[in-house]
Design a protein around this nucleic acid. Structure first.
Length: 105
DNA sequence: CTAATGACATTTG
DNA sequence: ACAAATGCCATTA
């Protein structure tokens, strides 16, 4: 709990099920504009499945990341799981993105 | 210590 | 409106 990343992980953990957030929101809630660092945190993700990084999407409502696009259907698997939680996702596009978007304070 | 990288975001042509 | 280029923060090598 010292680096920015650690904080990011904590924030992600607070994301309610069936809700998603953007890197920008997380960064903003941390008081910084390091959305890049936020994404980086997930990429490193030493906290593996403990942190629901799959609940974090891009600002435009697309899932993005997770290995690019077709860098392995592995990411789609997470999306499927996301759908199971109640988040409707069409491919890489989050459906009702503005409705399920969780905003930090 | 310096340089390079990255699951992004925003602005400009 | 779409496509491309640049900017940002923090971490790791």
């Amino acid at each position: 709990m010292r680096t920015f990343y650690e904080r990011v992980y904590e924030k992600m953990r607070k994301i309610p099920k069936g809700r998603v957030t953007t890197y920008g929101e997380i960064a903003r809630s941390l008081g910084s504009h390091a959305y890049k660092a936020v994404g980086n945190a997930c990429r490193s993700n030493p906290y593996a499945p403990e942190v629901p990084c799959h609940r974090v999407v891009k600002s435009n409502g697309f899932v993005g990341g997770f290995g690019g696009k077709e860098r392995g259907v592995n990411i789609l698997r997470k999306i499927e799981l996301l759908k199971k939680e109640g988040v409707k996702v069409d491919g890489l596009l989050i459906v009702d993105f503005d409705r399920i978007l969780y905003k930090f304070k």
